[in-house]
Design a protein around this nucleic acid. Structure first.
Length: 582
DNA sequence: CCCGGAACTA
DNA sequence: TAGTTCCGGG
């Protein structure tokens, strides 16, 4: 559900009903936290600390009390509160800062930013920590979100949540966050820090980190004119109907799994409300979008982030990264983000480091298992000692037997090593050309034995920290999707199949590819609507969806599909009216 | 302290 | 859906 605004903007419910006012509707914990965070009076309770989005609960008890008060849950305590917080891990709204007590960190990249790219998070109150590390040289000067002048009171109507820009940028930003992600939810991620320092994805957003929302408002919507002082500043999009916008209506095409985990929305957001395809309606002017993209691209490059996001926008010319060492990178623009780039093909199979360096090659991506797979491992053991109703009875079954028996039978899904390796480590994957080839091959050979070279079939999919790609193991046999002609690999496409290289996940990829095609087709048929939303299904769905939307960019820039995509795009765009929400 | 499953609730 | 409550386990 969305709230309608009058400006033609759409804002997801979760963001809209963030009023923290007592009488308002349900407050979400993270909003609440943000609220406290920005109020000086609570500095002794909770405060920003460390990196962007990192905060520490100084007084857990009090914090809990406050939360409990807000929610009318007098029984609230830190234990429960923290449970709720932990609950956010999976949603990627937060993650724990390891080693630091009561310290958590917002995943603005995937959360707020995604939805409020133009939100200024640092302007007011105690917006965002200023203690963030300096922007890596070369990065800061290239791209920045415009700083937003304080716009104190924006009425809901006046303060459109500019989903249009938000979504678009958000999608892109999300991509920028690539590699940064390790939500630590599995407790194995030691990358929390790494992510911060390593990718520097958040740095560029410093200026836009949320500090307030629409009403209450934590978030400040971006509206004012661009800040001329900032180079490559993105201009706030003028929201107006533009059916022919080259952009997908929503960011979904390039959604990161993180955002696409919610089946119902294809896009993962704190709440499923933000269903870009369904609920959000926005449109942009090509010019604006172009600007955005360019800026983003720029930033992408500057931040060593994968520009693959742009693969979707084949019609756009992506600015070249300003690499000091290397000459101008490949222009994605003309070759179209469609075909494999000669050079790109070689980028693959290198070390992580190298990969990092070759970030400008759109054909790399990580394979990561989506989150929540954990649940699946329980699949066969739905039971839970049904004691007396629910009371604190002998609840847990003899852990020993439980863990032992069930675990033995099924490969536990908490496949930390595998998924970790694949997710944390940059598991690169082929490029489009390869994909295509594989696809082709696959068509003939239903199964590729050489898949999953390392230790046989990967167990159930599991966590996916990355906000990028989610690759799961085929849980189900490749659905007998008819091989559509659309799937036809563009044999014409210049393909350079790296020798033997990545055969990993081939089946998966193929499957995804198919799925994607299938989806595309379906969507084209006008059935592109929400899907059931269920965490349990998320893994499965997420895979497909993700692949379809985000990953697809990499694999289906094939002329045929591209065409279709365009058409689809237009259609979609047309469908999107300027419904405002919020 | 932290994690995360499970049942339950509004 | 977004927690809340309870709890075993690390």
């Amino acid at each position: 559900m969305k709230t309608q605004g009058d400006a033609g903007f759409t804002l997801p419910d979760w963001a809209c009903k963030t009023e923290s006012s007592p009488g308002s509707r349900q407050v979400q914990l993270w909003h609440f936290i943000l609220e406290l965070l920005r109020k000086e009076e609570y500095q002794d309770v909770i405060t920003w600390q460390g990196d962007y989005g990192e905060f520490v609960i100084k007084d857990p008890e009090e914090m809990a009390r406050l939360w409990g008060a807000r929610k009318c849950k007098p029984q609230m305590n830190y234990d429960k509160l923290s449970r709720a917080l932990r609950y956010y891990y999976n949603k990627r709204i937060l993650h724990k800062t390891k080693g630091k007590r009561f310290t958590y960190k917002f995943n603005f990249n995937k959360l707020v930013l995604v939805n409020y790219p133009f939100v200024d998070m640092g302007a007011a109150g105690r917006g965002i920590p200023q203690s963030a590390p300096p922007v890596p040289s070369g990065a800061g000067t290239h791209f920045r979100f415009p700083l937003v002048p304080p716009v104190e009171a924006l009425s809901p109507s006046e303060a459109p949540c500019s989903p249009s820009s938000a979504s678009t940028l958000g999608a892109l930003s999300r991509r920028m966050a690539r590699g940064s992600v390790s939500d630590c939810s599995d407790g194995t991620s030691v990358h929390s820090e790494l992510e911060e320092g390593g990718v520097g994805d958040e740095r560029g957003f410093r200026a836009v980190l949320p500090s307030r929302l629409p009403h209450d408002p934590f978030l400040r919507v971006y509206g004012p004119p661009p800040n001329p002082s900032l180079p490559r500043t993105i201009q706030p999009p003028r929201v107006h109907p533009e059916p022919l916008s080259p952009f997908p209506v929503s960011p979904h095409p390039g959604l990161s799994p993180a955002l696409s985990l919610t089946p119902s929305s294809h896009l993962y957001t704190p709440s499923p409300s933000l269903s870009p395809l369904m609920g959000s309606r926005f449109s942009f002017s090509p010019e604006d979008m172009q600007r955005y993209l360019q800026a983003h691209t720029q930033s992408v490059y500057n931040y060593h982030l994968s520009p693959r996001a742009f693969l979707h926008y084949s019609s756009l010319l992506i600015p070249q990264p300003q690499r000091r060492d290397k000459g101008p990178g490949p222009m994605l623009g003309d070759r179209g983000l469609t075909g494999p780039h000669p050079v790109l093909s070689q980028a693959h199979g290198r070390s992580t480091q190298a990969a990092e360096d070759s970030h400008l090659f759109p054909f790399e991506f990580k394979l990561q298992a989506p989150p929540l797979g954990r649940k699946q491992r329980e699949g066969h053991t739905p039971h839970r000692p049904a004691t007396n109703g629910m009371g604190p009875g002998p609840r847990p079954v003899p852990g020993s037997s439980n863990s032992a028996s069930s675990m033995d039978r099924l490969p536990k899904i908490k496949v930390e090593h595998i998924s970790d390796v694949e997710s944390e480590e940059e598991v690169e994957v082929t490029d489009i050309s390869e994909e295509e080839k594989e696809a082709e091959k696959e068509r003939d050979l239903p199964s590729s034995p050489d898949a999953q070279p390392s230790g046989g079939p990967t167990p159930q999919p599991y966590e996916d920290d990355s906000d990028e790609d989610v690759f799961k193991t085929p849980v189900t046999p490749p659905s007998p999707l008819p091989s559509h002609s659309s799937l036809r690999p563009l044999s014409s496409a210049p393909t350079e199949r790296p020798a033997g290289g990545s055969t990993k996940c081939i089946p998966l990829k193929l499957r995804f590819k198919r799925r994607w095609s299938e989806d595309q087709r379906l969507e084209a048929d006008g059935a592109g609507v929400g899907e059931a939303d269920d965490k349990k299904v998320r893994a499965e769905k997420g895979k497909g969806d993700w692949q379809r939307r985000g990953g697809c960019g990499l694999q289906s820039p094939a002329p045929p599909s591209q065409r279709r995509a365009s058409a689809e795009l237009q259609r979609a765009t047309a469908q999107l009216s300027l419904g405002g929400d919020c």
